[in-house]
Amino acid sequence: MSFAVDAKIQKWGNGLGLRVSGLMRDIPHFEENTPVTIEITEDGFTVKKAQQSINPLPFTEEQLLAGLNPSTAHSDLVVPATLESEWTE
């Protein structure tokens, strides 16, 4: 099911805002603090409820990579030097 709803983007503080009311709020059951994902294209944007991850990682990428360097990385992660025999003309 899909609907087209006309709305107007208006000034909101120092930015712009789009009020989510009526069908835009009721059909997807948006409530205050509902997490959303916004997909941006050249033509506009689409707002969808965010997919909740089943088991979010307790660490950030930065925390996981802290201290990682060639001497501490697993040997599979270290990129070997290119062999001369791999070059073809």
Rank of each mutant, 00 (worst) to 15 (best):
T82P: 05
D26V: 09
L65D: 06
I40W: 01
H29L: 15
L57S: 08
V36D: 09
S21P: 10
E62C: 03
L18S: 03
N33I: 06
V20A: 06
T46Y: 13
P70I: 01
V5R: 07
K11R: 15
T46C: 12
W12Y: 13
T41W: 00
P80C: 00
L57I: 12
F45M: 14
I9C: 03
A4M: 11
E32V: 15
S21W: 09
P35W: 02
N69K: 01
N69T: 07
V47S: 00
V79F: 15
W12P: 07
N55I: 11
F30Y: 08
S2T: 14
P56W: 00
F45K: 01
S21F: 12
V78C: 05
T60A: 08
H29T: 12
I54Y: 06
N33K: 15
E86K: 02
G15K: 08
K49Y: 10
P80M: 00
S71N: 14
V47E: 01
K49V: 05
E31L: 06
A4C: 07
Q10E: 09
E42I: 15
L57N: 06
D6L: 11
G15M: 05
L18I: 09
M1Q: 13
T72P: 13
K11P: 15
P35S: 02
L77D: 07
L23P: 12
F30N: 05
Q52A: 15
L68K: 14
N14S: 10
V47G: 03
E61R: 14
E86S: 04
K11A: 13
T34E: 08
E42R: 11
E39F: 10
S53L: 14
E42N: 14
R19A: 15
V36S: 05
I9Y: 00
K11H: 10
K11Q: 10
F3Q: 08
W12I: 15
G22I: 01
E62Q: 04
S75W: 04
D76E: 10
S53E: 11
V5A: 04
S75P: 15
V36G: 01
S85A: 07
W87N: 07
P35F: 01
P80I: 00
V5T: 14
N55L: 15
G13S: 10
N69V: 06
L83I: 02
E42Y: 07
K49H: 06
E32T: 10
Q51C: 05
I54H: 09
S75Y: 04
A66I: 04
D43P: 05
E62W: 04
S85N: 11
